[in-house]
């Protein structure tokens, strides 16, 4: 028997509520569930606690004022080191932050997935991560070493959003690039998880793409599957496509100026996902023509 969990991005967002703790998969500007984030931007859902290896997902949600609190070790666009919207939100004091070390974050997600209250880690001792997050605690080893370690708290999530290369309608998700990031952990740490993918395929066809070790996300941890071609744009989704560097640069430039950001929002984020993809295609064509004209004129 097959349970068909396929749904639209709007249906996913319809299951989210304001005030939720939301985990977002991917890493920096890599394989982010951007189509789901864009659907979130179109909704009334707000006041979120976002848990993310932060990239433009955090930037867009922060710009829209939807993040009450962020749990992260960094926010970056990779090829553009600093995320402008995140920077602005922090420098304007508009974002509450739980700043963790990357390993504390990993083991916090793992603790949540394993239904443990914390995991002991060495990372964090002596650093200001402990000073700026006074709720963080240490734990003392009951064994002979008696080491006092950081108790990285479980990062339990109300919901997780991740984007993968392929999935079947039952919720088995497959990555085909070089790095799984932490998407399986995000799904296992969440009460409900939603997988968007480049293409929904028959279960029988999953292994035609690559070996069984690429089957990252297992269906008991998935509540909804959304087919969103180019749905990680403008972040990378190897091997289906790389990062759209020109578009990311345009995003980062627009994000630094309120007037330009209004124009960017108007052009790319005021319609639905089809409108977004069409606007990006038109922009890419214009940019190519402009580059050609410039070269021809030089």
């Amino acid at each position: 028997m097959t349970t068909d969990k396929s749904m639209t991005a709007e249906e996913v967002v319809g299951r989210l509520e304001s005030g939720m703790t939301l985990g977002i998969g991917g890493w920096g500007s890599r394989r982010k569930p951007m189509a789901l984030v864009r659907a979130l931007l179109r909704s009334d859902v707000t006041d979120l606690t976002v848990v993310s290896y932060g990239g433009p997902d955090v930037g867009l949600l922060a710009a829209a004022g939807k993040i009450r609190k962020l749990v992260a070790a960094f926010v970056t666009l990779d090829s553009v080191p600093l995320e402008p919207h995140f920077r602005a939100a922090r420098e304007n004091g508009r974002l509450e932050l739980t700043e963790l070390d990357e390993a504390m974050f990993l083991w916090g997600l793992t603790a949540a997935a394993q239904r443990l209250p914390f995991m002991p880690v060495r990372a964090g001792l002596g650093s200001d991560v402990m000073r700026v997050n006074p709720a963080l605690r240490t734990v003392t080893s009951p064994y002979g070493d008696g080491e006092e370690l950081v108790a990285a708290p479980a990062l339990r999530l109300d919901a997780a959003l991740v984007h993968l290369n392929r999935a079947d309608v039952r919720g088995n998700g497959q990555y085909l690039g070089p790095d799984p990031y932490f998407d399986d952990l995000f799904c296992e740490a969440a009460d409900a998880a939603y997988v968007s993918c480049e293409r929904i395929v028959d279960s029988a066809d999953l292994l035609k793409a690559d070996g069984p070790q690429t089957l990252l996300v297992k269906r008991p941890f998935v509540n909804g599957v959304v087919e969103t071609p180019n749905g990680a744009h403008f972040t990378s989704c190897a091997p289906d496509y790389g990062r759209d560097e020109p578009f990311q640069r345009a995003y980062a430039k627009a994000a630094r100026d309120p007037e330009e950001w209004r124009a960017f929002t108007e052009r790319f984020l005021s319609g639905d996902e089809d409108n977004y993809q069409a606007a990006v295609a038109a922009w890419t064509k214009e940019a190519a023509v402009a580059a050609f004209t410039k070269e021809a004129g030089a």
Partner: peptide
């Protein structure tokens, strides 16, 4: 830290690296 004049990357993996 509570309201930085200039937000940079975040601590990233610096705590785990230096302790290990």
């Amino acid at each position: 830290w509570s309201r930085p004049s200039r937000q940079l990357l975040g601590v990233r993996g610096a705590p785990v690296n230096t302790l290990n």
